[in-house]
Amino acid sequence: MVPKMTSQNKRSDRANRARMLVSCPDRPGIVAAVSRFLCEHGANIVQSDQYTMDPEGGLFFIRIEFDLENLNERREGLKADFAKVADEFQMTWSITRASRRKRLAIFVSKEDHALLELLWHWQSGDLDADIAMVISNHDDMRGLVEPLGIPYYHIPVTAETKAEAEKRQLELVDGQVDAVVLARYMQIISPKFIEHFPNRIINIHHSFLPAFVGGKPYAQAYNRGVKIIGATAHYVTEELDGGPIIEQDVQRVSHRDNVEDLKRIGRHIERTVLARAVNWHVEDRVIVHGNKTVVFS
């Protein structure tokens, strides 16, 4: 099964659509300057979202989608011209084409629920990205992945072979994908690997962070007698389970639920939270500021 033609049609419809992300110190005139710039260049704004941390000296964030005739030919010139506006307002910014689908590598271990959710969204056309490959330290998921035409790479990992395994992983993904998704990949990613994908590695952690960091969070939650469990999708940094949070959700549990019950309930939360986070990332809806995110969902 392949993605529906609706995804192809959607990309054709957005051939001249771009997305602009901006963060800068808040001050009067930012929205006016950006809007005036786009108007003067013949662009039509179709969506605009903004947020300020504090109108008096805080940071301002904006996400704009706009249409511009012959975007592909004009994009570099547009970026060069906008740099003058950006310099005036001390902006950190980007302009990307909505029609360019981001390429993803999905890392997975033995549990299939998060991977299956992403594959289902991709097949239905709801995940506007290309899954370039699936990489696993086990061979269990090959039968799920290869019939869909997605390359599957089995790279075993042990304490003795971890460095060599990660080198092989980097050879596969470096320059080939825009982001890496850890769909319950039960290995710690090294700082060297993270350097290649800053704020572009998305992990699903099976707890409501910052609670229950590290291994066996459901057992930790059970031992603590929690009444709510959750899941957290976040960007990966060198701090274990400490990167900028993209999305979270929770569900109530009770004293009647054992560890296996918590795992079963948690799997539903994990798959939903990860799918949302990946979707928002590929649609350029996330701006990272320090160890936080602004998500225009």
Rank of each mutant, 00 (worst) to 15 (best):
I45C: 04
Q90F: 11
R74W: 04
C39N: 14
S99K: 08
Q90S: 12
Q47N: 15
T96V: 06
E117T: 03
L104H: 03
L68S: 03
Y51A: 13
A105Y: 04
E146Y: 05
I30Q: 08
I150W: 15
E117Q: 13
R63F: 00
R74L: 04
H41I: 01
A86S: 14
K84V: 09
A129G: 01
L59C: 04
S48V: 09
D130Q: 12
L38E: 04
D139N: 15
E65I: 02
N70L: 08
Y51L: 14
V108Y: 08
A80Y: 15
V46G: 02
Q50V: 01
T92Q: 10
I62F: 10
G58P: 09
K102M: 13
D87F: 04
F61A: 03
T92V: 13
N44W: 09
D130I: 07
D81N: 14
R101E: 05
F66E: 10
A86F: 13
F82T: 03
A132L: 00
A132F: 02
L115Y: 09
S99M: 04
V134Q: 03
H113P: 01
I135D: 06
I131T: 05
R63I: 01
R100S: 13
L119K: 03
N44D: 09
I95D: 05
R63A: 11
A32Q: 03
K102N: 02
N70F: 06
R36W: 02
I45A: 04
I150D: 10
L115D: 11
H113S: 00
G125Q: 10
G149D: 11
G57I: 10
L59W: 13
R75Q: 14
A80W: 15
D87P: 00
D81P: 01
K102S: 06
W120S: 12
R75D: 02
E69P: 00
Q47R: 13
A98N: 06
R100Q: 15
A33D: 11
M91W: 08
E111H: 03
L104F: 08
G77S: 03
S99R: 08
E146I: 04
E73Y: 11
Q123Y: 11
A32L: 05
I131R: 02
P55W: 06
V46L: 02
E76K: 13
F66G: 06
G149T: 10
S124M: 10
E88N: 07
Q90I: 05
R97M: 03
F61L: 03
L118Q: 08
V85P: 02
W122T: 00
V134D: 04
D67H: 14
R75A: 12
A129H: 01
W122F: 05
R75P: 00
I64K: 12
E76A: 14
N137F: 09
M53A: 07
N137L: 05
S94C: 08
S35F: 10
A98Q: 14
R103W: 00
E76R: 13
L148F: 00
V85T: 12
R100W: 11
L115R: 11
I106K: 06
P147S: 14
K84D: 07
A43C: 11
